[in-house]
Each structure stands twice: as C-alpha cells, then as structure tokens.
Design a protein around this nucleic acid. Structure first.
Lengths: 206, 206
DNA sequence: CCTACCGATCGGTAGG
DNA sequence: CCTACCGATCGGTAGG
C-alpha cells in the first residue's frame, strides 16, 4: 500500500510537470526533485519515463470511457444522451484536469504499440459521439447534419475547456457543461437552412 | 536573396519537425539533417533554436491577424462578419497548416517576453470574436449568449481543424468553413430556451 | 558551411 | 533510497 502510494505521488508530480512543461521538456530529475528524491531513485518505483506517461494517459482514457461510455449506450432520446455525455466529459476534464491535459496533449510521445493503442481508443471514443448524433438524425431529433464533423466540433470545443478551466472560476463544471450542451443541441435541433441561406450558393466556391 | 531563401528553408524544415515531434523533442541536428547540413552550420543563419520557433510562430500570428482583423472590423451585420472571420481563420489553418499547428501547440516554449507578447496577441485575437458576438447580441441578431464562452467554443473548434485537416480530403477549406459557420450561426441565432428547457432547472445543481 | 570541440544535461544502471 | 557513474545527446561556439 505504501508502495502504491509512492508510485501515485510520483505520477502526480509527473502529471503536474508534463502539463506545465510538456513530456519532452520534463526530465526525470525534475520529477524526482518535486518529491525531494535523487534522480536515480525514481527507478525503484518506475521502469522508465515513458512508463509514467503511459500510466497517466491510460488512466485518463479509462476515466473518459468509464464516465461517458455507459451514458452513450443508455436507453434515452439522442438529445438527452448527448447532453449527459457532454456533462460526463466535462466532469472528467474538470475533476482531473492535470491528467486530462496530459492525455490530450502528450499521448503522442508514447512509442510503438502504446501509441497506436491509444490512437485506437481515441477513435472509439469519438465514435461514441458520432453514433449518438447519427441516432438523433435517424430519429429526426436532429437536423440532417454531418455526424463526423459535428462530433469533431463538439469534442474539440469540449477538450478546449481543459486549457482555460480554473476551479475557482465563476462557472461550475455543471454550468459550463450545460451551456455547451445548450449551444450544440440548439445547432443540431434547429433547421439547417435558416442562418446560411444567403450564403449557401457560395459554399463550393471559396 | 539567396540568404533569405536559405533561412526560409531552415524555417520550413523546422516547422515540419516541430509539428511532427514538438519543439522540445526536436534537436538542431534533426533540422540540419533535413537540409543535409551539419548541426553547427545552422548557426550561420540562425541565432538560436528558439529564434526559429519565434520566426515561425510570429509569422503565423501575423497571418491570422492580417486575414481576420480587417473582416472583424468591416461594416456589415455581425452574422456576416462572423462567417467571414470563420472563413478567413480556416483559410489560414488550411493554407499554412504546419505553421498553424506549431503556432497553436508550441508557442508556450517561447521564453520570457516573447512568450508573454504572444499570449497578449492571442488574447487580442480572441477579443475580435468576442466583439462580433457582442455586437450581434446588441443588435438582436444573436440570442443573448455568453460572448466569452461562445468565442472560446468557436475558436477551440476551428483550431481543432488543424489537427485533422488533410489537403486531399473530401471537403474543401471553403466547405469546411461554411459548415462550421452554419453550425455556430444556427446556435447563435436560434432561441436560447428551446432545446434545454427540460433541463434548465438542473443547471446550477450538477 | 565544415571540423572539432565545449560544458551541461539527458535517461538509466550498479551496488549498496 | 543514495552515491556514483555510464554513454549519448543536447544547444551552441571557435576557427577556418
């Protein structure tokens, strides 16, 4: 138990540093220093620097899957499911912000199979959002939008929250999530042709 | 002129590498190797590695300002201006993708005053979007949304394009821009209360 | 633009 | 968990 705690302390220090400086610009001695250890001492608990990154990133991925997955497969109308998925995703970002930022920005420093495995998990996660949107379109709960693009818009915007969210800010995570959900559900539910009618003929030109 | 060309070749090679591996994980010898040079030879054209990053990042920032700034201040209804700003922003991302990605992800490796200067320019740029939204709300062209949050949603989503856009993809930059503009203008123009009516009472709880 | 080099730092290990 | 160390690589420079 004490060993497990120490490992987690190391991972937490690494999360902070990877977030602040990036994985490549953080040395194992930087991490050790935060825990008042010598550089080499880390290797009593950790096999490699990349191992630390892997622990942080894969645990963050687990959290997203665990929180959002069940909601995505719930028996409910697509708009309700999407709103709850947005809430869950924002919940993970705001409650584990350090790890979320590292997950979002530093996973590409994984090598070989770990990297491609994580790429696969990200694809599968995005597919959850594409599926809800497709369901909503099929049920005429959403306008006939491009599900792939809509999913990218939503996820890009949600992940952006990790870059500006401050726990002591004005809005609670729930308020942020609901405002984002309002915004996206509005654009998915409203008639497609209304706002861009005047420009629809220029679409293929620019 | 030949000297200016060589410098640009170096910056281009650096852009590619900074985008692929990140600034911190790219060595000056990596850059030199792409141009069949020895590591030390770079310093005939470049004062430092960070100098290269600065050239790339500040030129990208110039491009965004030059393309989007004038449109933001044009005399036109807010929805039209916002659409044109989105087109211009997407245009820069898709026509200078390498530099845009480096600008978006690596600017924080600048040190001292350069870093804070770039942070200031980013703030000013975001303010352009906040201002158009505020104008639209004031003119009742948009529903009374939170301009700061809406601007962040739009910019996060637009910048996400830099991560998935492929020049040989199905959609042209103009089509992508117009689909994004449609989506956001819909959510800004549609009545605020409709999609989340059933959930509005839970907003402050979660 | 190259050769040859500088001191510093890197991730990681041996032995205790 | 520390001391002491490994070879490799880092950004950058001197002198030509």
């Amino acid at each position: 138990m004490a060993i497990e705690t120490r490992r987690r302390q190391i991972e937490d220090a690494a999360s902070s540093l990877f977030r602040e400086r990036g994985y490549a610009a953080t040395s194992v001695r930087d991490i050790a220093q935060r825990l008042n250890l010598q550089g080499g001492s880390l290797y009593a608990h950790v096999a490699s620097k990349e191992d630390l990154l892997w622990s942080i990133v894969s645990r963050a991925a687990d959290r997203f899957s665990a929180e959002v997955g069940p909601v995505a497969h719930a028996a409910a109308p697509a708009p309700d499911r999407l709103r709850r998925m947005i809430r869950a995703h924002v919940g993970v970002i705001t409650s584990a912000q350090r790890e979320a930022v590292v997950f979002l920005h530093e996973w590409r420093f994984l090598s070989g199979e770990r990297r491609s495995q994580m790429a696969g998990r990200r694809d599968a996660y995005e597919a959850l959002f594409r599926a809800v949107i497709a369901d909503g379109v099929a049920a005429a709960e959403f306008a006939p939008v491009d599900g792939r693009m809509s999913a990218m818009v939503i996820l890009s915007a949600l992940n952006g929250i990790a870059s500006w969210y401050r726990p002591d800010g004005e809005l609670t995570p729930g308020q942020i999530a609901d405002q984002y959900a309002d915004l996206f559900l509005r654009s998915l539910a409203c008639p497609v042709d209304s706002p861009s009618e005047a420009h629809s003929m220029t679409r293929t030109i620019t």
